[in-house]
Nucleic acid binder design. Structure first.
Lengths: 138, 138
DNA sequence: CGGTATCCAACTGGATACTG
DNA sequence: CAGTATCCAGTTGGATACCG
């Protein structure tokens, strides 16, 4: 009854899903942490060492969000000295697999992207009188 | 000769690639724009209408970056009134395909994510004396 | 060891007004 | 129509210091 009218068109469903994924892993660190757990559980300090450049604060925030989303589990080991380990859930593993094509794409296109940027910047740097700054079509 | 020492380990390669992809499409709008070009070229105003909630400024910024990265082309049609159309490059199309698994993953796990969040928030809201706030393991 | 708390700089992105 | 320019609020994230 709270449904107002027609069901959303496919494009809007895509958009909604994209927003969910990006909200989860679209930030600077989440996917890097997830990828570092691919091989197995890691402790907080291991992650901090492995995920290059991450601050303690951002690692804490990132793993908290991923735990909340059900991507990884946080386990406290009551030993001396105490430590905490993080591991992917099954859902986290499938997420990891789902990002693999994107990783491959990146590997294949890294050079082409650099080329495209260089070419674009060249065109942008020199916009003299007779030059063709943009594709034209009449 | 400029190479200092050993080749980077696979994990670091992954990380570097992830940073590239995230830098390109990890923002709020890029993937939404790309997905809206999947079916074919679109004009600026069409994109603005279709990509729900995007401001004129952000659409301009987003398509400029995607053009620079070689993901889409910008074509100016010299008619009255003048208009501009955007289309995916072959590289843009392959990027789009590479994100499909992530889209499917999102579709399959949306409900589970909501459940995980709800459960996490419930545990967080009520951390009374005898409760088990976190997984423990000795 | 694995956090939390606080502060602050930089960036993101929305609103609005103006332009060719 | 398709921008550009400006301003500004909100968020992200780094540095630092302290805590159980």
């Amino acid at each position: 009854m709270t449904v107002t009218d027609s069901e959303p068109v496919p494009e809007q469903q895509d958009a909604s899903r994209l927003r969910v994924v990006l909200g989860m892993v679209g930030d600077k660190w989440s996917l890097l942490v997830v990828c570092n757990l691919k091989e197995g559980p890691r402790r907080f300090s291991e992650l901090k060492r492995t995920v290059d450049g991450i601050s303690q604060r951002m690692l804490t925030v990132t793993v908290r969000n991923l735990e909340r989303d059900g991507i990884l589990t946080r386990t406290i080991h009551n030993v001396m000295p105490p430590h905490v380990s993080y591991a992917l859930t099954p859902m986290g593993s499938t997420l990891c697999e789902a990002t693999l094509p994107l990783l491959e794409w990146s590997a294949e296109h890294l050079a082409l992207i650099d080329d495209a940027r260089a070419e674009y910047d060249t065109r942008a740097d020199t916009p003299p009188a007779g030059s063709v700054g943009n594709q034209l079509e009449i």
